[in-house]
Design a protein around this nucleic acid. Structure first.
Lengths: 185, 185
DNA sequence: ACGGAAACGGAACGGATGTTCCGCCCCGGA
DNA sequence: TCCGGGGCGGAACATCCGTTCCGTTTCCGT
């Protein structure tokens, strides 16, 4: 059923997805659907045929980013050095935020357009708890630091990404370093 | 000239301001003007007569908060203990963000509705530089930490305030503590 | 008490955005 | 090559928001 559609329809669906990726990354998740359609050089109706509502389109784009996040977390869990795993995770997260304006909204608005990712969020939280527990067991964490602190720090990095400033990249980098210093024993 | 206006006009102006304070505090600075008018039990035109544009209304509300910030910074400059001054400033800033949903947008959007506070912003930055320089001279700061790091941290706290989550207060508190730990020698 | 200027309320305008409608067009099977 | 039905584009509809217009009401000096 799924594969017996017209070839132009299939290719247009890809063009919409590509355009949506680019648009959301550059202008944020609130970018108008018309903007996506324009970038794809298609009519709005075509976008809506492939993604019945704006939320479906956003969800489709976010799914890819969330999956990338999941892979990254897997790698961190495989790291044998507890502090390097945790610290590197923070740094990669910061890098990702710098280059991708869409991802943070998936993390920042649990009830919003990204409500579909509750399961992945839970998995992510669990993995983070493991990373923190390992670093703590290895004595690399400051007294009193827990998973909530790491989570607060990541949220802060993500929230910073929303600012319209052009110096965001530097500010985010500094903040990530500052957070690592605050977590370290 | 200013005081020879009709009494109803003067009292309505106050009602608008009060309603704006309440509305913006509860719903954020993007709350519709109609909402302010409704809360004041006045027509929209009345709001617009006293504050020609939405920005003027926002600015009027923010001016009060900015002034409070200025007084707080003055107190920090009077503190004889450099680290306590800097650390306390961060904590008070975090507290203020928790209780005031409007203030951060004055700090986060230099070109936005709060463009009118450029002078105060400059003064604020200068005072912060002084606080950091003193703390550094007293040897209370970690190697490599500068005013930009403190500013990044405050920005992060302010940005966090924008999240719709109900656990913001705790998260902001933790973040503030984390930042202090990251700055300390 | 009265009259006019100032203030008021709410409908209306203009622009943005999500979504739907509909006539035209093109793919793909015969 | 021809035809039918799904696909397409863009205008149109509905909603929301900032702002303005204008007929009506209210204050206040005389």
């Amino acid at each position: 059923m799924t594969q017996m559609q017209r070839s132009d329809a299939r290719s247009n669906r890809d063009r919409v997805l590509t355009a949506a990726r680019e648009t959301f990354a550059a202008a944020g998740l609130e970018a108008p659907v018309r903007e996506v359609a324009r970038r794809a050089e298609l009519g709005v109706a075509t976008v809506y045929r492939h993604f019945p509502t704006r939320t479906d389109l956003v969800t489709a784009v976010l799914a890819e980013r969330v999956e990338a996040c999941r892979r990254q977390m897997r790698r961190a869990l495989d790291d044998t050095d507890p502090w390097r795993a945790l610290s590197g995770m923070i740094e990669e997260f910061a890098d990702r935020q710098i280059h991708d304006r869409a991802l943070n909204e998936a993390l920042l608005a649990p009830g919003g357009a990204a409500g579909a990712f509750a399961e992945q969020r839970r998995e992510h939280v669990e993995a983070m708890n493991t990373l923190v527990a390992r670093a703590r067991a290895a004595g690399r964490l400051r007294e009193g630091v827990g998973p909530e602190d790491v989570r607060a720090g990541l949220l802060a990095i993500a929230a910073l990404r929303n600012l319209p400033s052009s110096t965001n990249a530097q500010v985010i980098g500094r903040l990530a370093e500052l957070l690592r210093a605050g977590l370290r024993a």
